Amino acid sequence: MGRRSPYPEEFRNDAVALWRAAAGRRTYSAVAADVGVSGETLRSWVRQADGHASRGHARGGEAAEGQDEELTRLRAELGRLRKAEKEWELEREILRRAAQYFAKEMRA
């Protein structure tokens, strides 16, 4: 587990609120300089407040597990659909050839 932040939770929440109020007009670094922390520290607080993990770190929580399960399910379904699509292509090709054959027979 990570070490405990030296900043109180209320201070972090206020810094995040300040950044959100200035979002689009000021950078993380500019807002962070006003409150006396680094830009990356403020950015990580915003990510935590939004419920996102930073890049390169393992995701935690039930929401992430649910997303992983859904992603696995969707990938499996995509695989089944691609296999079915190939089978349908083969069936269409057989029907196309059969239609051509019978069209020739009717002309002769």
Results as ranks from 00 to 15, higher is better:
residue 1 M to N: 11
residue 1 M to P: 05
residue 2 G to T: 06
residue 2 G to A: 14
residue 2 G to Q: 12
residue 3 R to N: 04
residue 3 R to C: 00
residue 6 P to L: 14
residue 6 P to W: 13
residue 9 E to W: 06
residue 10 E to P: 00
residue 10 E to N: 04
residue 10 E to S: 07
residue 11 F to S: 03
residue 12 R to F: 06
residue 12 R to C: 05
residue 12 R to H: 06
residue 13 N to Y: 04
residue 13 N to G: 08
residue 14 D to R: 15
residue 17 A to Q: 11
residue 17 A to T: 04
residue 18 L to M: 11
residue 18 L to F: 13
residue 19 W to F: 15
residue 19 W to N: 01
residue 20 R to E: 15
residue 20 R to D: 12
residue 20 R to S: 10
residue 21 A to G: 01
residue 22 A to F: 00
residue 24 G to M: 01
residue 24 G to N: 00
residue 24 G to C: 01
residue 26 R to D: 03
residue 28 Y to W: 11
residue 28 Y to N: 03
residue 28 Y to M: 10
residue 29 S to F: 03
residue 31 V to T: 15
residue 33 A to L: 02
residue 33 A to V: 02
residue 33 A to H: 06
residue 34 D to Y: 00
residue 35 V to C: 07
residue 35 V to K: 06
residue 36 G to P: 10
residue 36 G to F: 07
residue 37 V to L: 00
residue 38 S to C: 13
residue 39 G to E: 09
residue 39 G to D: 03
residue 40 E to G: 10
residue 40 E to V: 11
residue 41 T to R: 08
residue 41 T to Y: 07
residue 41 T to A: 09
residue 42 L to R: 01
residue 42 L to Q: 04
residue 43 R to I: 00
residue 44 S to A: 08
residue 45 W to V: 00
residue 45 W to F: 02
residue 45 W to R: 00
residue 45 W to Q: 01
residue 45 W to N: 00
residue 46 V to S: 06
residue 46 V to F: 05
residue 48 Q to R: 15
residue 48 Q to A: 15
residue 49 A to Y: 09
residue 49 A to R: 12
residue 49 A to C: 11
residue 49 A to Q: 13
residue 49 A to T: 09
residue 50 D to F: 05
residue 50 D to K: 09
residue 50 D to L: 14
residue 50 D to Y: 05
residue 50 D to N: 07
residue 51 G to Y: 10
residue 52 H to T: 08
residue 52 H to S: 05
residue 52 H to M: 11
residue 53 A to R: 11
residue 54 S to A: 14
residue 55 R to W: 13
residue 55 R to L: 14
residue 56 G to C: 04
residue 56 G to L: 07
residue 56 G to K: 03
residue 58 A to Q: 14
residue 58 A to V: 13
residue 58 A to H: 14
residue 58 A to I: 10
residue 59 R to A: 13
residue 59 R to K: 14
residue 61 G to S: 01
residue 61 G to F: 03
residue 62 E to P: 01
residue 62 E to V: 09
residue 64 A to G: 01
residue 65 E to D: 13
residue 70 E to S: 12
residue 72 T to W: 03
residue 72 T to K: 09
residue 73 R to M: 01
residue 73 R to K: 06
residue 74 L to P: 00
residue 74 L to Y: 02
residue 76 A to R: 12
residue 76 A to N: 10
residue 77 E to W: 03
residue 78 L to A: 11
residue 79 G to L: 10
residue 83 K to R: 15
residue 84 A to T: 05
residue 85 E to S: 10
residue 85 E to F: 06
residue 85 E to K: 14
residue 86 K to F: 03
residue 86 K to D: 08
residue 87 E to H: 04
residue 87 E to L: 09
residue 87 E to R: 07
residue 89 E to M: 01
residue 89 E to Q: 01
residue 90 L to D: 08
residue 91 E to I: 02
residue 91 E to L: 04
residue 92 R to K: 12
residue 92 R to I: 07
residue 93 E to K: 10
residue 93 E to V: 02
residue 94 I to L: 08
residue 97 R to T: 09
residue 97 R to I: 05
residue 98 A to D: 00
residue 98 A to T: 02
residue 98 A to R: 04
residue 100 Q to W: 14
residue 101 Y to P: 00
residue 101 Y to T: 06
residue 102 F to H: 08
residue 103 A to W: 13
residue 105 E to A: 14
residue 105 E to V: 15
residue 107 R to H: 07
